[in-house]
């Protein structure tokens, strides 16, 4: 937000700093979810053993958020409320079908990422509401997950990023796939058609190629200074393959760098 003020792209009359509101910085596991208070700093998530254990996808993604100096100040609630379609945390939340807890003076409301993210930098958040908590579904130990991103420079906004979580059946075919992509549409997008395509099938190069082709059909990237629409489309396909491969190897019990 401060860059927008410094560049005078936004000149609000009042700013309410919620940085000192007590009790909004926490990370704990609660049944099916890892619940994180809106004022929890990125750096706290990065260092959290609980996050690493319960939601390794989030641990992997958080390192792509800006630089250390940014992560020391930036909060998870801020990243979500900002609604940047190329940001990492919205992409992870979308892949996991997580929840956003909004609060106003009358109480709380729980919304899905799909309901919350409307378009570039615009969310359903009302002026009298604040993001209170983010709930990231816990990833089962047997699942494999991966977060991959391409940025011009580490810490810059991602050109394309993909978050993937896969489960394998005893026969080795996909019993569940969660996949989301950021940076190519006006909001982070769950790739449901690709998930359906993969479901029940055995992971192999041919299948990944199909998933990649379908992804390239589904995304609607735009051109800007950092890359053309064609490049981003191509990259989307490549990144889906990379994320799926990495996640699959991890689900098979392998280690990838």
């Amino acid at each position: 937000m401060i860059p927008l003020l410094n560049m005078r792209l936004s000149t609000p009359k009042y700013i309410i700093d919620i940085g000192r509101v007590g009790g909004l910085s926490y990370i704990h596991a609660d049944g099916e979810s890892l619940v994180i208070g809106a004022l929890t700093k990125h750096r706290d998530i990065e260092k959290s053993k609980l996050v690493k254990e319960k939601c390794p996808l989030l641990s992997e993604a958080i390192r792509w958020v800006g630089h250390e100096q940014i992560r020391n100040r930036g909060t998870v609630g801020g990243s979500i409320a900002h609604g940047d379609p190329s940001a990492e945390l919205p992409c992870v939340l979308t892949a996991l079908r997580g929840e956003i807890v909004l609060a106003d003076e009358n109480g709380e409301e729980i919304v899905s990422p799909e309901e919350f993210f409307l378009t570039y930098m615009l969310t359903s958040l009302q002026p009298d509401q604040l993001v209170k908590e983010i709930r990231f579904p816990i990833i089962k130990p047997a699942s494999g997950s991966a977060f991959v991103e391409v940025a011009r420079r580490h810490g810059d906004f991602g050109l394309v990023e993909v978050a993937a979580v896969v489960d394998l059946s005893e026969e080795g075919s996909f019993s569940e796939v969660k996949l989301a992509i950021g940076g190519v549409n006006s909001i982070p997008t769950a790739l449901e058609d690709v998930e359906r395509l993969l479901f029940g099938k055995e992971p192999n190069e041919e299948l990944f190629k199909k998933a990649s082709d379908l992804t390239m059909e589904l995304v609607e990237p735009e051109s800007d200074l950092h890359g053309t629409a064609e490049y981003r489309r191509e990259l989307s396909g490549t990144m889906v393959i990379r994320a799926l491969k990495k996640a699959t190897i991890r689900a098979q019990g392998g280690r990838v760098m």
Binding site: I2, N6, R43, E68, Q69, I70, N72, R73
Partner: peptide
Amino acid sequence: GDPVRSCLMLAVQ
């Protein structure tokens, strides 16, 4: 104790 960008913080913070 943590390194931060001072251009992204208000003095009141």
